[in-house]
Design a protein around this nucleic acid. Sequence first.
DNA 1: CGTCTGCTATGTGTAAATGTCATGGCCTTC
DNA 2: GAAGGCCATGACATTTACACATAGCAGACG
Lengths: 305, 305
Amino acid sequence: MAFTDASLTALRVFREVAERGTLTAAATALGYTQSAVSRQIASLERAAGTPLLHRRHDGVRLTPAGQIVLRRAATVIDQLDATARELAGLPDEHATVRLGWFTSAGAWLLPTALTALRHTHPAITVTTREGSTPALVRALRAGTIDLALLASAPPFRPPDNETPALVLRTLTERGLRIAVPETHPLARGEAIDIADLHGQRWIAGTGQERVMGIWPGLDERPHIAHTARDWLAKLHLVAAECGITTVPAALAPAMPPGVRVLPVRGGPAEQRRILLAHLPRTLPEPAARLAAALRAAALKTDLWS
Amino acid sequence: MAFTDASLTALRVFREVAERGTLTAAATALGYTQSAVSRQIASLERAAGTPLLHRRHDGVRLTPAGQIVLRRAATVIDQLDATARELAGLPDEHATVRLGWFTSAGAWLLPTALTALRHTHPAITVTTREGSTPALVRALRAGTIDLALLASAPPFRPPDNETPALVLRTLTERGLRIAVPETHPLARGEAIDIADLHGQRWIAGTGQERVMGIWPGLDERPHIAHTARDWLAKLHLVAAECGITTVPAALAPAMPPGVRVLPVRGGPAEQRRILLAHLPRTLPEPAARLAAALRAAALKTDLWS
DNA sequence: CGTCTGCTATGTGTAAATGTCATGGCCTTC
DNA sequence: GAAGGCCATGACATTTACACATAGCAGACG
């Protein structure tokens, strides 16, 4: 069996798997059973004559052959979608940009940039999705989004090691901050000393992200009073004096009333970057415009503080 | 049903149909029955939501929607083939050029150009196929060949009217000639008067091409003594004094012993062109080299006569 | 003017591809 | 060591996609 015998549904399933990172998630997304996905992948691997996935306990990773297939599969599927649009007499979808973003970007950077872009280039349509860094990176490689806003923390490793490497551009690099209630004793100063963080009650993230929200490198076991995934909830918990939490500086313009954002003095610098990532190919013009708007919005944030 | 539900085999079948011009021929080429091809096309049209073929008594023609689908289908299939090669670790097939040619080009122009190219660019692989003008044009549009040598006669209409129009370049434009046995009375002069063509015995082509081989515009019903599709057979029939036939001037360097090639005096000019055709996209470098070699070979022919 | 001969479309039966369901193995986590 | 995530696979049902046979239709030819 040659690779040309690969079925179209197998390619679609494969792309979904590449994007989701597990067969089960891909199955759910496609409305299939996990078993069906497993078989499709098996058949595709039989056609390719080589494994396309590394099976791991927590999901799957692409093998080098898998990366080859993914790239081709994405363009094949895109071609078919483009055919459908062209047959329907619709304009080429090139005026649409698909952007992925991480949660913290959604409160200020994203709406600011979109508002600016809508005024300067009303013809450009932007669709967006929120996602974690690995999810967004997979989506980029699967060709499901054109641009991704990623968060990056020291030691600032690239978000993946696959080839071709993603094009990364740093939009901002700012210190990590701490959000405290205005009524809190620490809110009196212009900065918080690292020693004063001892014994505080923290509001952390949920699930895998339990470390998020807690100042890195504390030499004690932190007291986690609440966990929340959502920024709005977290910050209102802070305002309600339920605890304190870390926030990226880029979020400072979006604070609700009753919350102060302060830097931390002492200890190693805790920088956070916002990256703009895309595949190494020249961006279509609308995507480039959106990228420019995002850069401008990031700059504006820098001027604020 | 949306177009994205189109099956890969349907696309492959469709490309073959577009290339062959009839469902039956495509079926034979693919090893299917005609019925299977008909069903595949029907299913593809159902997916597209619109007819892709004009059914005609002598085969099928692409509708505008069909042309859209053909272009996309060709790139989809190419992508899959490229994937197979890439997975096999083979170099990208970009060093290979696929050339189509009409019969008369095979005796002199083609071997001359290929020999020259082999000396100047030994790394370039050329694969070729013979075919009629419509077959070659369909092959170009189906993406099965990269370049085509086409014959063209007055009134020099473009080989098809579809969009996008093919890029055409005239390699030679030369008068039509007549091949006569050396022993023939007409062989004594340096040219043949049109009046002397009366009552001659002709060697014509076969099938649809019965007019080929007979001087155009004769005011009598020609006496066809033999019909032959093959140039070698035709010319040896001429050498054996079985009759005379027309030949394009470009074939003159390839005459077997005992045959003279002479122009015709009087009557309207009977020009014949050799065209080099390809799709309107920039040629990959090896294809451009082959095109140059063909142009050079054509020029050399011009200098000869 | 009937008879060919090409073409395509379609009814019918069968075999293969492609799903679901249920189960089992493996690894990590609590 | 029990639970819960992951993937693989055997058993079955259903849909798909083929071959075979037949019919309609239009042009070519004697």
